[in-house]
Simulated scan of single mutants.
Amino acid sequence: MDIAQAPAPSARAWSRRLTAEIWIVLGLSLGKSAVYAVVAIIAALTRGPLGEQTTALNTSQSPRPYLDLTYQVLSVSFALVPVALVLYLLSDSGRSAFRRIGLDLRRPVRDLGWGLGLGALIGIPGLGLYLAGRALGITVAVQASGLDPYWWTVPVLLLAALKNALVEEVIVVGYLIERLGEKRWGIPAIVAASALLRGAYHLYQGWGPFAANAIMGVIFALFYLSRFGRRRVMPLVVAHTALDVAAFVGYQYLPEEWLMALGVDV
């Protein structure tokens, strides 16, 4: 007996489904982070001048070293679940999601070259914007690593950097751009949405990092859509990982006088 197939959804119904899907994905991942960041900056602004406040990244989760390591690894692992979700969702056409958004190793030399170049393009001006924000009192002091110096500290910081890169670039660039494109959004609107989301979930650090990350979002989205990026997130993952490794490991191990010269509180 033949089983009747359900009719294909109309374009309008498919667009509504995509809208719901996008909100669910963002609600489980970086959209949630953006909401918390907005609340955090409101709390900070009502507490006092931003320039006199501090926020810490990669903090210890237990005074017991091996329990802390366990928590760190679990935190990284579960943070990658939304990445797995969007890759699954993007494979709905039967095409590999890894190939669709270029999260593969088909062009390792090219991706590495573009990634390191983009990292330098973003990192140097980004540090300048951070320092300017600190000087103007509109950016909190960011302590990039609050971990004690155990044998596993550097590997965990490397994992944290890679996790951040995968979560942000796969969701904010690969997934969001592909889905908004399916909804027939124009390129300016797609780039603006991706960039503003990236800036929003960094708001807890102040207005300087918001601006720097929004600019980074514009550059990364345009690169992904350009003939140079070829809809590949791998160069962006490389760039983001390099930036975070420099920030996390550098903060952990650079001499205090160097950090103070860079305007970083220790």
Rank of each mutant, 00 (worst) to 15 (best):
R184W: 12
G217S: 06
A34K: 07
A84D: 04
Y88L: 14
L80W: 11
G217A: 05
L18D: 12
V109N: 01
A200F: 08
L87V: 07
I24Q: 03
V238N: 11
V142T: 14
H240W: 07
R99K: 11
V191Y: 07
A195F: 12
P7F: 09
A11V: 13
I215G: 06
V109H: 11
L196T: 09
L45W: 07
I24D: 01
S75C: 00
A242V: 09
D92I: 12
T55K: 10
N213V: 05
T241K: 02
I171C: 03
L28V: 10
L74Q: 02
W152C: 09
V167H: 08
W152Y: 15
V233R: 02
Q61M: 15
S15I: 01
G128R: 10
V233A: 05
I101M: 12
N213W: 02
L112Y: 03
I124S: 03
F220S: 04
T54G: 01
I215K: 00
L112K: 01
L116D: 02
R107K: 08
A8E: 15
A132R: 02
L236G: 04
I215S: 08
S15A: 15
L236P: 01
A34Q: 04
L254N: 04
P82Y: 10
W207E: 00
V245M: 14
T153K: 08
G133Y: 07
R184F: 04
S10R: 00
A44W: 03
A79S: 14
P82L: 10
V237T: 10
V38Q: 04
G133F: 11
V245Y: 08
F228Q: 12
R107H: 15
Y71L: 15
R47T: 14
L254W: 10
G128Y: 10
A6N: 08
V76P: 02
A97W: 13
V25I: 13
R47C: 00
R12K: 11
A43V: 07
I177C: 07
F78R: 11
G48P: 01
A141T: 00
E169R: 00
Y175V: 06
A189K: 02
R100T: 13
A37H: 12
R230S: 04
A79L: 13
I138R: 05
V266L: 15
L28W: 09
A6I: 08
L176I: 07
E257A: 15
L90G: 06
M216A: 13
R110A: 14
A37C: 12
P209N: 05
T46C: 02
R64D: 15
W152I: 06
F210D: 03
R198F: 15
D265P: 00
A8P: 01
S96M: 08
G27Y: 12
A84E: 09
L67T: 10
L118K: 04
W151M: 12
R107P: 01
A192R: 04
I190P: 04
V25Y: 02
A192L: 14
S194N: 11
L28N: 04
L162T: 07
S226R: 02
R110C: 05
V172L: 15
I41G: 11
G51V: 01
Y224D: 01
L103S: 06
Y66P: 00
P82S: 11
L57P: 00
R230I: 08
G206R: 01
I215H: 00
